[in-house]
Design a protein around this nucleic acid. Structure first.
Lengths: 186, 186
DNA sequence: CGAAAGAATATTAGTGACTAACATTCTTTC
DNA sequence: GAAAGAATGTTAGTCACTAATATTCTTTCG
């Protein structure tokens, strides 16, 4: 119910990553992963609903919405979303540079997987938008602010995952990326 | 090579839309569309590489990149991308409220299709980002500006497609949405 | 300890989105 | 009006994913 389940899951995930790295995501079939992990194809899909979910399932952030809701109401919607995400992000530990970064790197290199990752942020986007709307922001404005911030967050994640030289930390990039949303035109 | 081809394509498209509207995207198979259009399943895939592409293929944007590249270099990257998209958009005719809007409405209601639409903007995003980088903008900054603008554009398209009351035109919304990216904080 | 309950897994078979290979039927052109 | 070339059909196959049912662990409790 738990110990074995977790071991199996870990085995499948490790086998999948290894094959993806070696042969490329599209060249690897679900059956190949299953065989490498010593389970049946059926079992693979019990642990991961889709082949893509091996890479793109990330239990992102329910706390972002709360951080957005708390921002001062005088600010413009975009600025409130921006600051909320920034604050929420600082409370999250820097992701381990082993697993997460490798998985993100594979996903970042594949357009379909990138789109999938963005799709997974839909819930967060809705949550942010609703938090803004609850304090009087118009619907389209709220959706746009949320979408822009998450797009930028997503972009910085990809940039980090693809930067093999590891020039700076992820949170540095997130901060920098979110700053791009500030137009400081004189 | 042309007359017949176009007629066939139109027949397939019309049949697909009708079935999608009646039964829902996921309930309709490619074979059903083919049969309704009086062609073989093979022929369907010759005209539309994927079932999703019936709805999500939009030859929008090669001109956007050019419009971005032309913007004054003194402006911040985000502002340049924003104005470029805005100008490019104004040169495009308001989409016919029949076909386009119905198709977009179906796509907007389905998370997988929304992701597909976003994926299709990848090329445009790269083009915008490169146009900015060619004038000295840093890579991550350029990518962020492009991603934010396209996310907002995408958001306004969805909003328009799902607004059954048709309160305002698409270009009105695009303008409004892009304006959200301007933080006019004192 | 040992059997019954419950979870995890395997097997088999099927659907639906696509693709490749090849044959066949238009259309066009000279 | 036939030859060249394009569009279409047929057949068969792969791969992601699902449903149903059988089977093998694990656990737990008497």
């Amino acid at each position: 119910m738990s110990a074995k389940t977790e071991r199996t899951r870990a085995r499948i995930l490790a086998a999948a990553i290894e094959l993806f790295v070696r042969d490329g995501f599209d060249q690897v079939t679900a059956s190949m992963i299953a065989e490498a992990a010593g389970v049946s194809q059926m079992t693979f899909f019990r642990y991961f609903p889709t082949k893509e979910s091996v890479l793109t399932d990330d239990p992102y952030d329910p706390l972002i919405a709360r951080a957005v809701a708390v921002q001062p109401r005088e600010l413009m919607p975009l600025e409130r979303a921006r600051r909320g995400i920034l604050q929420a992000w600082q409370q999250v530990p820097e992701p381990d540079n082993d697993g997460t970064r490798i998985r993100m790197g594979i996903a970042a290199a594949n357009p379909r997987l990138r789109a999938r990752m963005l799709e997974n942020t839909t819930a967060t986007q809705e949550a942010i938008a609703h938090a803004l709307q609850d304090t009087g922001v118009e619907q389209l404005a709220a959706q746009c602010a949320a979408a822009a911030c998450l797009a930028v967050l997503h972009t910085s994640l990809i940039d980090w995952a693809l930067d093999l030289d590891m020039n700076s930390t992820l949170s540095d990039r997130v901060r920098y990326a979110l700053d791009q949303l500030t137009i400081t035109k004189s």
